[in-house]
Design a protein around this nucleic acid. Structure first.
Lengths: 120, 120
DNA sequence: CTGCATCCCTTATGATACTG
DNA sequence: CAGTATCATAAGGGATGCAG
């Protein structure tokens, strides 16, 4: 939980940020949305630098928030599959909007940084 | 810096998240966008629980990224005004989109949480 | 394979006091 | 007013080992 209740008073988007934009959540949602239902190891491999501990934590949280669903198959060895829910998929247009903004403006951010750094 | 370079490989929105959705950045941008140009103290009062140290850090970063501009008036006492830039303001529609999603889906997240918690 | 339990460490954030 | 400096604390995340 990065944002506490107070910032929310000043900003209506704060609660969403807390749910959707915590660390690792966008890459996880993006993977599930783009490549479909996946096993734990598949996600682990795709998010190259994540540790199993952290991946588990994030998936639990996303499951609790209703953005991801978890299916356990009692086999040997066990198989667990994760899939984005309808609620999670409803973030799709938002992510697309975000990508568009990035394409159009990220270069300007870089320029601003370069200019700022040069001034010192 | 919450997101490192690796998650970016798996997710095109990760870089934007890093810039726009770090802690305190949305309340700050929201305040400047909604209430216009403001002094340091005004922001401090609006974001009720932020400390001057953290507010300074965030404003510096937003300034470096070109989302906020800082104007220093050499008076006694000194007066410093912060204002959202054109680049910062270009996030407006995105924030609106976010707010819409929140209005429509936050209740479903709450339900999912309640259901999840009850299952244990 | 999936993932929980520990331990440990770094970093981020917060509280407090103090300057130009 | 607009910060800076210092210290304290908590949270995030990595490493390792083990269990179902």
């Amino acid at each position: 939980m990065r944002q506490t209740s107070d910032p929310e008073l000043a900003c209506p988007v704060a609660p969403v940020v807390d749910i959707v934009f915590s660390r690792w959540t966008t890459p996880i949602l993006w993977s599930l949305h783009t490549y479909g239902r996946q096993r734990f190891v598949e996600l682990e491999r795709r998010l190259t630098s994540i540790t199993p501990k952290v991946l588990t934590e994030r998936l639990r949280r996303l499951e609790r928030d209703g953005l991801v669903s978890r299916t356990y198959h009692a086999e040997v060895p066990p198989r667990v599959e994760y899939e984005i829910t309808e609620l999670g998929a409803s973030l799709g247009p938002l992510f697309a909007h975000l990508t568009t903004w990035a394409d159009e403006n990220l270069a300007r951010v870089d320029e601003a940084r370069a200019a700022y750094d040069e001034r010192r």
